[in-house]
Amino acid sequence: MAAFAEGTPCWADVLLPDVRAGKRFYGGLFDWSFEEADGLGALGPDGADRVRDGVDRVGSGEAAPYATAYRDGRRVAALAPKRDGRMPTTWNVYFATPDAPAAARRVTEAGGLVITDPVPLTGGLAVIAQAADPGGAVFGLWEAGGQSGFERQGEPGSFCWTEVYTRDKDSVDAFYETVFGFQVHDLDDATVDFRVWSPAGTRASDENAVGGRSVITDAFPAAMPAHFLVYFSVADCDETAARATELGGRINEPPFDTPYGRIALLADDQGAVFAVLAEPEAA
Score class of each variant (00 low, 15 high):
residue 28 G to L: 05
residue 258 T to Q: 09
residue 241 A to D: 11
residue 124 G to F: 10
residue 62 E to D: 10
residue 62 E to W: 06
residue 88 P to W: 11
residue 69 A to M: 05
residue 281 E to H: 00
residue 187 L to E: 11
residue 61 G to Y: 00
residue 273 V to Q: 10
residue 38 D to L: 15
residue 154 G to L: 03
residue 173 D to Q: 15
residue 32 W to C: 13
residue 266 L to I: 02
residue 151 E to I: 02
residue 109 E to I: 00
residue 167 R to D: 12
residue 127 V to E: 13
residue 59 G to K: 09
residue 136 G to Y: 08
residue 93 V to I: 15
residue 76 V to D: 10
residue 27 G to I: 04
residue 192 V to R: 12
residue 156 P to D: 06
residue 118 P to K: 02
residue 255 P to S: 14
residue 44 G to R: 13
residue 194 F to H: 10
residue 105 R to Q: 05
residue 251 I to C: 14
residue 50 R to C: 03
residue 276 V to M: 03
residue 198 S to I: 10
residue 147 Q to W: 07
residue 137 A to N: 09
residue 25 F to I: 08
residue 52 R to K: 14
residue 63 A to T: 02
residue 46 D to L: 03
residue 199 P to D: 08
residue 208 N to F: 03
residue 49 D to C: 04
residue 235 A to T: 15
residue 147 Q to T: 07
residue 163 E to H: 06
residue 49 D to E: 14
residue 265 L to N: 12
residue 37 A to N: 14
residue 213 R to W: 06
residue 205 S to Q: 05
residue 193 D to F: 02
residue 144 A to E: 03
residue 7 G to M: 04
residue 215 V to P: 03
residue 78 A to C: 07
residue 119 V to S: 08
residue 89 T to K: 04
residue 166 T to M: 08
residue 199 P to F: 08
residue 92 N to Y: 13
residue 209 A to D: 06
residue 94 Y to V: 09
residue 115 I to G: 05
residue 218 D to E: 14
residue 192 V to F: 11
residue 1 M to H: 07
residue 171 S to N: 15
residue 207 E to G: 02
residue 66 Y to K: 01
residue 254 P to W: 06
residue 218 D to L: 04
residue 100 A to M: 03
residue 161 W to F: 07
residue 135 G to K: 12
residue 31 D to Y: 08
residue 199 P to A: 05
residue 60 S to C: 06
residue 46 D to C: 05
residue 244 A to D: 14
residue 251 I to F: 06
residue 210 V to Y: 02
residue 14 V to L: 14
residue 125 L to V: 07
residue 283 A to W: 00
residue 37 A to M: 13
residue 252 N to H: 14
residue 172 V to D: 13
residue 216 I to F: 04
residue 192 V to W: 08
residue 248 G to Y: 13
residue 167 R to A: 12
residue 206 D to I: 12
residue 233 S to Y: 10
residue 106 R to K: 10
residue 188 D to I: 00
residue 198 S to K: 11
residue 155 E to Y: 08
residue 185 H to A: 08
residue 157 G to P: 10
residue 186 D to S: 10
residue 153 Q to V: 07
residue 142 W to Q: 01
residue 273 V to H: 01
residue 95 F to Y: 11
residue 170 D to N: 12
residue 158 S to D: 12
residue 237 C to I: 05
residue 217 T to A: 07
residue 167 R to E: 12
residue 40 L to E: 15
residue 201 G to Q: 05
residue 81 P to L: 03
